[in-house]
Amino acid sequence: MSLLNSLFWALSFAPFNVFKGGNAACTENPDQQALLERASRAEPAALGEVYDQYADRIYAYVYRRVGQAEVAEDLTGQVFMRMLEAIRTGQGWRTSFSGWLYRIAHNLVIDYYRRRGRVTLVDIDEAAPIRATHGDPVRSTESLLNREQLRAALFQLTEEQAQVITLRFMDERSIAEVADLMDKTEGAIKALQYRAVLALRRVMQS
């Protein structure tokens, strides 16, 4: 009977791309789930609310990877347009919405870098404030160059490694949160984090 029950559920949800997947844990709280359900039905108010919840975070995530405000703004807009497109075509999120959204952002950033082909240094005027250099302009410039190199190095990691580094050390998310976003266990994230830092170290040295 339990088999029939499972089959019944699987069949009933299969064609509708309901974000609560069969065995996937739905990580959002009930209010959030309700909001996302309304958003998935293209309810403008819900979409606006979702946008407001995530826009700044996605912007920050993208900015930290690309280092240019204008590009980050553009890509942020594209992330949410893709969200609408996914809703339109019924190919939206199935498990964690935020993880799904970050994945879109991540993929757009990767695409952007691939297209750019090479690293171009960001205009000093546009760069974010630099910490810990205490007004020394030479050090500031060096630091800026290092930051750009570091950003470029991130793109030589695997997708998951880059994602875990960004979420963990730039977005300052806890291991539990990253695990949630990436749909992995905390143990897996710890291991991934270790491999990612190791790989980044190697890339920077080379």
Binding site: R64, E73, L84, I87, I130, A132, D171, E172
Partner: peptide, 29 residues
């Protein structure tokens, strides 16, 4: 890597524009 986390203040006008565009597209949808 942690040093990279600084994000400059997002231009409110640009952010508002991005949101407006999103909402227009949402209404269209």
């Amino acid at each position: 890597v942690h040093e990279l986390r600084a994000v400059p203040v997002r231009s409110s006008a640009t952010a508002a524009r991005t949101r407006e565009q999103f909402m227009a597209a949402a209404m269209h949808l």
